[in-house]
Amino acid sequence: MANLFRKGRGGPVWLAVLVLLSLGLYLADSRLHLLEGVRGWIMAGLEPIQRLATLPSSLWRGASESFHSREHLENERARLGQENLLLKTQMQTFWSIQEENKRLRAALKATRPLEQDLLLAEIIPVQSAPLGQTVLINRGAHDHVHVGQAALAAEGVLGQVIHVGPQTAEVMLLSDGSHALPVRVARSGQRAIARGTGGMDRLEILHMPNNADVREGDLLVTSGLGGGFPAGYPVAVVMGIAPAQSGPFASISARPLAPLNDPREVILVWMRDTTAPLPAETKNTDGAAHAH
C-alpha cells in the first residue's frame, strides 16, 4: 500500500492516471449513470460519519424539545387533533370521489389510475454541494427507494431521488438548476415544463406558448408525463407572466409550494399498477433491495 503511494509522489505519469481516472468517473457517473452501485457502497460507508456530523444538532434539537413546557405540548396536541378532524372530514368526500372516478373511468374504458404507496422519510441535515440543492434522507435501497422517485412535502412536490445508498438517499430539490418536471395548469390543462432556477422561491415555466391559457395565481400540478412521477400533485403557483417579444414562448415564473428552504419531512411515493406486484418486487436500480 505504502509503496504505491510513495511511487506516486510527484510522478507526472501517476498524475495523468489520476486525472484521467477522475474524468472517466465523471463521464461514467454524470453522463452515463453507470456508477450508482459504487456510489451506494461509499454512501453506506459514509453513514456513520454523517450520523456523527449531525449528532450535535440532533442533540440540541432533542434537548430543546425536552424543555418544551407542558402547556406548549397541550396546545400542540389540541391543534393537531383539530387538524386531524378536519382532514378526516375532507377525506370522507375524497373516498367517494375516488370511487366515482374509478367507476367513470371504467365506464369510459380509460386506463386504470396507478395506485400509490407512501413512505415517510426524515432529512439528515448534512452539508451538500455548494450550489446544488439536494437533501439527504434516511431511507435507501433497504426501503426500496429508487432513482427518479418522487419526493413530496405536505404542501406539494419537493423533488426527486437522484442517488440511493443502502440506508440513505439523496433528493434533488425542484429548485435545483438541473431539475425539470413536466407540469400542467390545473385549471386549463395546458402542459409545460417547470425548471429550477437555483433560487429557492422561483421556478421557470418553459414551453408555454404566448397565447396559452394561463393566469397569475394558477396552480401547476404534475402532469405525470415522462413516467416516474405521479400525476396531479401540486407543484407551484404562477407568479408572473411576460409574453415574449420574440419567439413563441412566454416567460413565466412560478413559486414552489413545498417549503424548499426548510423541508422537514419527505414523503416518498411509489406508483404501481393495481394489477402489478407490490413495490417489494418492482424494479430497483440498486441491486440491494432484499431486506424486509
Partner: peptide, 29 residues
C-alpha cells in the same frame, strides 16, 4: 509529502464527492 500525496488526495476527493452528492470525480480531480 512522502505519505500524503496525490493518491490520498484523490481518494479523499472521491469520498467527498459521494458525501456531498456532486458528480463523482469532480472533487477527486
Amino acid at each position: 509529502p512522502d505519505t500524503v500525496g496525490m493518491s490520498i488526495a484523490w481518494i479523499a476527493g472521491l469520498i467527498l464527492d459521494v458525501a456531498l452528492g456532486s458528480p463523482l470525480g469532480t472533487h477527486a480531480l
